[in-house]
Design a binder for these strands. Structure first.
Lengths: 202, 202
DNA sequence: TCAAATACTAAACAGTTGTTCAAGAGCAGT
DNA sequence: ACTGCTCTTGAACAACTGTTTAGTATTTGA
């Protein structure tokens, strides 16, 4: 274990995994060092500070999500910004890390939320552009609610899996979520209060 | 400050406020004691343990929410179970405390989620009973998504306020949320992919 | 009024945390 | 072979955590 870059990278990978599992505050330098069978001082030597290690873990794992230029990238059509569902495809570690970063509070949580919100707004714009957006009265608030639903699904991942009785990555659970979501987004679920009388709508 | 019950109650109130602000793990016994101008040992004397203090703070603030009989109470019509919006009316401390308890993980977080989910299911049943529920294909998953939206709104309270530019309790912000939510729940926001051709829908 | 119980505190303990420091160990270039 | 460099460690530090202990003050009850 003497090649420079390799050791550093291994330490960073282990840190990412443990952060994803236990969160930033819940993971001590000593526990990372122990897992890596290495002295805690080595972590300080390589990363300087726990905060710096956390930041590096974030930018390694969340990449574009927390970049300052996220907004610009959304406008720039040449950039294909990864949406948050694509994170799930990268495996549970990435998703859990995202979750922990969102829960941690502070600057990065805010950036993640902002990025997700911009994405929701972009989706609405896109749907509108192809004529598939209904005549809604408050696009901004609608985008906000979509953001909350999306991020909430990440935060409550384990509860979803428990309630629906299977891993969120399984076809069965995934299709139930997609179908219910589509139903809600296209048709709505409630009838207006006067629905029993007139059915032609308002 | 020598009447027994009063001191204990004051300590508990201060603890609740600080837990609501900084979370359970983020609030030390010493910081509570300092805020109360009291020795840390007094907290141990009155509550025995930090865990016990946390539990007492939870059952004081969240009451029925974390009771074992929540499910039974929902079935029992005589019990008026408070819904989570009613928590907001009790002030920001209660809402923040709820948020922290939900974020803390562990047993109580699960109970809060379960309680909210049961409430969503009950709401769907109720709407169905009065004939205002559309013909949805997966009631359970729909209830799950409503739960996530509701709890997500609590978790992302500060982001909502920042995005909409005002306190969530203000009429302006509240009505935007209510309207957008109603619009989405009644009409949906997206048109089906074939919408530009046939408008009569399926 | 006296004794027992309770409320309360200062000090310390043992554990954990992030970080520092001095000193080896292994390697590269001269 | 020697010099310097990075990698790596064990030990320690200071700050914090929850908790204990021994002791003092105050209230209660007979």
């Amino acid at each position: 274990m003497r090649s420079v870059q390799t050791t550093r990278d291994q330490l960073l990978s282990i840190a990412v995994e443990m952060f994803a599992e236990k969160g930033f505050a819940g993971t001590s330098l000593r526990s990372i060092a122990k897992q890596a069978e290495v002295s805690p001082a080595l972590l300080v030597h390589h990363f300087g500070t726990k905060d710096a290690l956390v930041k590096e873990a974030i930018s390694k794992t969340l990449g574009d999500w927390v970049a300052d230029e996220k907004a610009a990238m959304l406008d720039d059509e040449s950039h294909q910004v990864e949406n948050w569902q694509s994170l799930a495809a990268k495996g549970t570690t990435s998703l859990n890390f995202f979750r922990q970063a969102l829960l941690a509070g502070g600057e990065y949580s805010q950036r993640l939320f902002d990025a997700a919100f911009l994405e929701s707004e972009a989706l609405l714009d896109q749907m509108q552009a192809v004529g598939r957006l209904k005549d809604i009265s408050d696009k901004q608030t609608t985008a906000l609610m979509m953001t909350i639903s999306g991020l909430g699904s990440v935060l409550f991942m384990s509860q979803i899996e428990q309630t629906l009785g299977g891993p969120i990555s399984s076809d069965q659970v995934a299709s139930r979520l997609v179908n219910a979501n589509q139903e809600m987004m296209q048709d709505g679920v409630f009838l207006p209060a006067t629905a029993t009388i007139k059915k032609t709508g308002r």
